[in-house]
Design a protein around this nucleic acid. Structure first.
Lengths: 221, 221
DNA sequence: TAGATTGTTAATCGATTAACAATC
DNA sequence: TAGATTGTTAATCGATTAACAATC
């Protein structure tokens, strides 16, 4: 009953549960036990039960979990029963790729506008949405009640643009720029730092090669 | 001296250290203490010292850390002193965006080839690299000693393609498809699940709105 | 009712933070 | 030498796993 804060570790696992449950639902599976789901997803059954219990009991003793019900409930927890309107800032390759990704729409994320500072890109279209000049950013966000701004611009411009977004009253920023944004509490930022991800991959490649050669300790020369 | 395994929690923080140290270096800062770095990065000084000590002492008592040396050492740990050749599979919007992203090159990741199953895309160019048909995948990877395959294809085709890659002897897969890949131990997989990231953002928006309205407990109707 | 499986408490494990002796 | 700051050990905190009573 208490307003216990759910840890980000748990939140981070919810989309994966949601994905597996969606697949099970599509396959016509009606119910599943934590043990079976555990085998499928390769996490412990204990963790599954703990995770779900953060939000109250979704299951039934002796039965397991109803797949469709659980799927819907996790969807609601993730806020996927609501519509989130977003704009993309930056009409470069990445911005256009994100704009063309229609799957977001199925989860309630509605592509509403696109902006770029380059006059040559202004006026071009992405999925029927015309690219607008940066000057129109504030007006458009306010008039259209935009929830999320997707930052697909270089890091140098990301910081000042984020400040403008904050002033405009944006709720959330999905940040693809390789820089940390400092925004006031209450504005949500989710970073996708592609090069960080690639560096982790690089580390794991190197580490494995070292292990392979039984070089526990590597002298630097 | 022991081959103590470094936790992925630590590895996950290295790219961010690397980024901040690179910026300090560019600004001409010569040395920094864990305390100053702590203030800058908003993590505890204790964590910084612990993290660096996983790899042996990079600092000096009474002095702090030499920025350039630390930057170089973290780069080496991350394997950025080596070259990693990669191919992109999937010449759609995302694949092309990744191919056009020249910053990867600066970190030693070399774009070498691109593949697509769609004959209409085969032959088109991305940064001077021609898109090849999927039939040439195995031959090309082996002849060119490719380390990393970037999967920018729909999830349905991602699983069989990953199997082909594994057979071909690829070292690592950077997976943008929304599916979990099962590969043998020793092949590194790093997932970038964009919709998972967006769902986390969605959760945090909803959560903040609930807190705002002091609705700790929300009845479902 | 008996069997299955959750919900939940307790035990363990790992990661983070605090503290301080070593040392530059 | 005195001051600063690391390297490292110990304490704390949080997350995961194990266990089992509750209950469908």
């Amino acid at each position: 009953m208490d307003e216990k804060e759910i840890s980000q570790a748990v939140i981070g696992r919810l989309p994966r549960y949601f994905r597996y449950l969606g697949e099970l639902k599509d396959e016509g599976v009606e119910r599943i036990s934590s043990q079976d789901l555990s085998a499928l997803m390769k996490v412990t059954a204990s963790q599954i039960r703990q995770d779900f219990n953060n939000f109250g009991g979704f299951g039934q003793q002796g039965y397991g979990y109803n797949v469709e019900y659980l799927y819907d409930e996790i969807g609601k927890i993730l806020g996927l029963d609501r519509r989130h309107k977003f704009v993309i800032i930056g009409a470069g390759n990445l911005g256009r790729a994100l704009g063309n990704y229609t799957n977001f729409e199925r989860r309630g994320f509605i592509f509403r506008g696109m902006f770029d500072s380059n006059p040559e890109l202004v006026g071009s279209q992405v999925r029927g949405i015309g690219v607008m000049p940066m000057e129109e950013l504030e007006r458009f966000i306010q008039e259209n009640d935009i929830d999320i701004a997707v930052l697909a611009i270089p890091k140098a411009s990301a910081v000042p643009v984020a400040e403008r977004l904050v002033k405009t009253g944006i709720r959330a920023i999905w940040n693809f720029a390789h820089v940390d944004l400092n925004v006031p509490e209450g504005i949500q930022v989710e970073n996708v730092h592609l090069s960080d991800s690639l560096m982790k991959l690089s580390y794991n490649i190197s580490r494995y090669q070292m292990e392979d050669r039984h070089l526990g300790e590597q002298k630097r020369d």
